[in-house]
Amino acid sequence: MTRDALRAVSTRWDTVLLVVLAAVVVTAGLLVDGFASGRNLQFLLLDVVAIALIALPLTLIVITGEIDLSVASTLGLCSAVMGQLWVAGLSLELVVVLVVGLGAVLGAVNAVFVTRFALPSLAVTIGTLAAYRGLAFVVLGDQAVADFPFSWTTAASSTVADGSVPWAAVVTLVPAVVFGVVLHATPFGRSLYAMGNNAEAAAFSGIRVARAKFWLFVASGAVSGLAGVYWTLRFASARADNAAGLELAVVAAVLLGGVSIFGGRGTLLGVLAGVLLLGAVRNALQLADVAADTLDVVTGGLLIASVVVPNAVGLARTRWRRRRTA
């Protein structure tokens, strides 16, 4: 019963988020000095690009009822390997291709554990979260590789013509649209919701559940590798500890975006709105000189609110309806 009510509210959760996002942006623009400026927009977008990228495949994974916590470690390992390959004298174009390929392989390792051996992805990716980060340190140790060509590192934060929208954000739109269309308008995407709600019934309908999940984890790895390239170039620094702990921020954004942790529900638009909302709130509070500890409390509070509020609204609604019919 609560589930039904929950669904009724949550189908519009992405709309709610967009409204909240707009409200936050308008309020911050009016109240916080320096928020409503092109430069700030650039900073804000640069900060959320990596999270947005990784959140794309993760959204699809969570909709199928699985999770990938190893994304940030994959990013770190890819960054470390990128550094080593560059030092070894490979051309950067080749390095980028190899690193994204490595990400895909790391994703495939997760995929094999989850689909072949049928192990819970939560446990598997907690394992690879530790393993990949450890390997990153094994690969690059305490070194940092920083001598990437200047033209590449500036490109990572350069902006489109008028100077406020970073190219990275524009480029991110491409995979965002691809993932969005795949999720919402293809047979593959439709089948993800079915398997997230009931994997057995999906299999009985002739849907290749294991194969779909396999490729999603591979995509997650590859995109994390790509995010690793971006991260390395943006900070001009390949390090083993790059983006440590980012997985929590990404998962928080995906959940805030209205994707059910149990699978079967969520939209890509909602997730992008969630990513931007978290980014905008943090950015505005930072500009308003709110301390970092308060930011953490706000982030945690938003996350809790994102699940408690629809639930509470749903309960209230059923109660109201029951009273009306009684």
């Binding site: 589930r3 669904r7 269309v181 308008a185 293809t186 047979p187 995407g189 439709r190 089948s191 919701y193 079915a194 709600n197 009931n198 019934a201 999906a202 309908s205 002739g206 849907i207 079967g264």
Partner: peptide, 25 residues
């Protein structure tokens, strides 16, 4: 059945490919 999905989604779950045009639904 996928009990949480709609009647429509369940009824067409086996025919997603034929119902799509150019790969899109």
């Amino acid at each position: 059945l996928v009990m949480e999905l709609s009647i429509e989604r369940n009824a067409t779950l086996t025919r997603l490919k034929p119902l799509s045009r150019l790969g899109f639904l």
